[in-house]
Write a protein that binds this DNA or RNA. Structure first.
Lengths: 161, 161
DNA sequence: CATCTCTTGTTATGTTATTACATTTCTATT
DNA sequence: AATAGAAATGTAATAACATAACAAGAGATG
């Protein structure tokens, strides 16, 4: 099973390249247009293992010569989220690159309240439990978000990121 | 086990009264000040089985003679959430009265994308599954929100609320 | 009744997100 | 290659959500 990498040292440059390559491959397969803004937006998210606000992304995009108005960022981010290349963290009003591209998707997010890092972990058992509750009340789930706030291992150990 | 009532006919006046009575009792026990604004804010939330935005609540509060500025609503709502009398639905930027006051709290929310109703269901199994994932990556969970978007039974049956 | 704390009210501002519309770019088809 | 339709982008304007900072009032405690 894939681990939540954000809390551990890893080949960061590699994970960036892989995510981009994956997005490109998926786009080709599905006939999506992985345009420059969209690509750049994903790169921006991949540059950090924390969630970025739409306006943070916008700032960087416009610094790179793209439009400077909010919809530029929101549209690019919406595209990334819609196709599973990124996720939206409601609790933070922010976005983060998908850490497990290609996996079946029912991710849970673990947000450290001390250092703001965000880890994404696959959460099939959580999803299963939730679907069961839903079935119980006759509700059909189409999307969901599962977000936990707490303390990451590094901060618990006294060495905040 | 308690059911998600929002999707079924029930004694609505009764559930309102019970929730208020419960809040009063808890406040007495814990020495909280269940002041007029706070009480009225809870009543307002109880008047609907859907989530209300802070500004919706504010509008009603100020119509009742309370202050007309955002902090009035945000503070009252914060109090209610902090003490478990209400919940915040991040996905909707909105608040809803707690449907299971007194129960141990790890609620999941089911949001109907067709009629905007929100059901709250106890979700201990979900919580358990999530804690297990968290333990796996060394993360300590302090709070969480679990929100599912989909279709409620009534809307699925073609009779949106 | 003096004081301390909590709560409320208000002003001002900060942050996040969307609507609407003009323009350009891409794609498919001729 | 020309062109019509669809998708994407850029921009302006504004809507919706949320908080900081401070003054004034209400309740508890000694």
């Amino acid at each position: 099973m894939a681990e939540a990498k954000a809390f551990h040292a890893h080949d960061h440059t590699g994970c960036r390249g892989a995510a981009l390559a994956h997005a490109e491959a998926v786009a080709r397969d599905k006939g999506l247009r992985f345009t420059p803004v969209r690509r750049r937006a994903l790169e921006i998210l991949l540059e950090e293992h924390r969630a970025l606000g739409a306006y943070d992304v916008l700032e960087r995009l416009s610094a790179d010569g793209f439009g400077a108005q909010p919809p530029v960022a929101y549209r690019a981010l919406e595209f990334l989220v819609e196709h599973g290349f990124a996720h939206r963290i409601r609790r933070l009003n922010a976005f983060t690159a998908c850490a497990h591209p290609g996996d079946a998707h029912a991710p849970a997010f673990f947000i450290c309240e001390s250092c703001d890092s965000v880890a994404e972990a696959p959460a099939e058992p959580v999803l299963t439990a939730l679907r069961k509750e839903a079935a119980h009340i006759g509700f059909t789930v189409s999307r969901m978000n599962i977000e936990a706030v707490g303390t990451c291992p590094a901060c618990a150990a006294g060495s905040p990121a």
